Amino acid sequence: MSERYASYEKLKFDWPAERVLRVTMENPGRMNAADAVMHGELVRVWRDIDADPDVSVAMIRGAGDAFSGGGDLDLVRDMTQDFTTLTRVWKEARDLVYNVVNCSKPIVSAMEGPAVGAGLVAGLLADVSIASRTARIIDGHTRLGVAAGDHAAIVWPLLCGLAKAKYYLLLCEPVSGEEAERIGLVSLCAEPEDLHDKALEVAVKLSKGSPSALRFTKYALNNWLRQAGPTFDTSLALEFMGFTGPDVQEGLASLHEKRRPDFDPDSPI
């Protein structure tokens, strides 16, 4: 493995095929929830991949049976109590979206189990997003007590239309992989046992394509996302303003209750 990735702690790397780099989010016992370390690593990894001459395609998945369990509750609580932490994470959330969008290498995501929070940003902004039929895609912002920000306002309306985006973002209803494909939220749906093989198959096909053709096709298509920049910046500001309000404390208490050790991990979070 390149020294480029040696300093990462919560992201693991392997090469499942020539010129295909697979990134695995790993936070054992917490459904790969993004703590402060992983959140920062999810921001900078796309810059490292973009600059890596050995990578033609990147893949992202979660360890075990979960893709991403949302934000680590310790980090969320710190954001409500410390302005420095809040502003750091705000900048990271903005940079995460733009770094995924601006990465010149194609990105393939493989989502199974819960897909929430910072991991979901990369999952849905990936150039080819593949979800297990039984995946549970949830934008949990309003359940926490803050406005739906980060990737939500920039990409959900483009992918599945404004009516569906409003329904799922306002209510925080879980979207199965099957339903996500039906409404256009993800590129493909696969059976759980076929998910990672399908993602690798797509990545290998992309790795054999013309690098410049893929790069500039991605660049042109992502201009739709760049044009939504002012909307994204506004939504992000409204989201993080909510962390200083009273509703987030009630949301934190509710989420903490659902993440007890005895809580059923197969239930929507």
Rank of each mutant, 00 (worst) to 15 (best):
V100I: 15
V57N: 00
E92A: 09
V100W: 03
D95F: 06
S56K: 00
K91F: 03
D82I: 14
V76W: 10
G71H: 05
L75V: 02
L96N: 11
A66G: 01
P53S: 01
V57T: 02
G69F: 09
C103D: 00
F67K: 08
V100M: 03
F67T: 10
G69Y: 08
V100C: 01
T85A: 14
D82Y: 09
W90H: 10
D54Y: 01
T84D: 13
K105P: 05
G64Q: 13
E92D: 12
N99H: 13
G69K: 08
A66M: 12
A66Y: 12
C103M: 01
D82K: 14
R88Y: 04
K105F: 05
A93C: 14
A63N: 04
G70S: 04
P106E: 04
K105V: 04
S104Y: 02
P106A: 07
A93H: 06
L96W: 05
I60V: 13
R88N: 10
F67V: 12
R88C: 09
G69A: 09
R88G: 08
D78G: 11
V76Y: 08
R94I: 14
A58G: 02
D72K: 06
L75K: 01
V76N: 06
T85I: 15
K91T: 04
K105T: 04
D74I: 13
